[in-house]
């Protein structure tokens, strides 16, 4: 038996909105410690990794490790039927080919139940090692969204460069070019408005803006985002989910041949 109740059902809605343009099917890997999802886009350019600890759910019950394959289209249709302040309970019995969703309003007056057929999704599982990054930049998520949106008006690619002077985003195309520089904040009122730049080594990488713009669909999940960069390695864009999980996007850099 698997059962997990998320008090803030809106978090699940936001997670699905964040990935539905990148992946079509996902496996929910459920264990006693929580739920994880690993999925690649059809072109194998990026990888999505969602990790949700069991402490984010009340109750959480997972008697045996179970993998639940779901089509995102169906999942998206179902969670859209939940109100933002509803709790969402996910239930699956061993040996059945369905997953159940129960939505409950805060006062308990309205409950809704939906069922989705499980799918058998064949996906390769990759090991994501702990990496020592050259630079780790934490910034307001809406700022990153704005930069990606603005730069995509100029070109298809963005160059991200971290130096002791800060982080620079640049793009160029037929129309012209643009550069945006961010420096580490000195004094800000709210921690979420802070720009924090950790630099071990200067780093300079190029990425496809199309994918970064997909990733910024996760902006409603968190006021902050972290960009982890390493030479000739995938960029890791991390959105924390409350204090119990995260959504990470890995994007392979573009390489000059």
């Amino acid at each position: 038996m698997f059962e997990a109740r998320l008090i803030q059902g809106s978090v699940l809605k936001k997670m699905i909105d964040a990935i539905k343009d990148i992946v079509t099917d996902i496996n929910l890997d459920c264990s006693s410690t929580g739920i994880s999802v690993q999925a690649m886009d059809s072109g194998h350019v990026c990888l999505v990794l969602i990790e949700l600890g069991s402490d984010g759910f009340e109750p959480y019950r997972c008697d045996r490790n179970i993998t639940l394959g779901l089509g995102l289209k169906a999942l998206s249709v179902v969670v859209r039927c939940a109100n933002n302040d509803d709790s969402i309970t996910i239930k699956a019995q061993e040996g059945t080919d369905n997953i159940n969703f129960v939505f409950e309003s805060p006062n308990g007056e309205k409950t809704s139940q939906f069922e989705i057929k499980l799918m058998d999704i064949d996906s390769e599982h990759l090991g994501i090692p702990d990496t020592e990054y050259d630079s780790v930049v934490k910034m307001p998520s809406h700022e990153f969204q704005r930069i990606c949106r603005d730069m995509s008006q100029l070109g298809d690619s963005i160059v991200v460069a971290c130096t002791k002077d800060g982080i620079q985003f640049s793009a160029s195309g037929d129309m012209g070019s643009g550069k945006i520089n961010l420096r580490q904040s000195s004094l800000v009122d709210k921690e979420e408005d802070q720009i924090n730049i950790e630099l071990n080594d200067p780093v300079h990488l190029t990425f496809a803006l199309r994918y970064l713009n997909y990733f910024t669909k996760a902006t409603p999940l968190s006021p902050t985002v972290t960009l982890s960069l390493k030479a000739e390695s995938p960029l890791c864009v991390t959105y924390p989910i409350g204090d119990f999980g995260s959504m990470k996007f890995f994007l392979a850099p573009k390489i000059d041949d």
Binding site: L126, G127, S233, A252
Partner: peptide, 14 residues
């Protein structure tokens, strides 16, 4: 020429 590498080539399969 700018090339986009396959993301799975960066991580080991398990």
């Amino acid at each position: 020429l700018i090339r986009q590498r396959d993301i799975s080539s960066f991580f080991p399969e398990i």
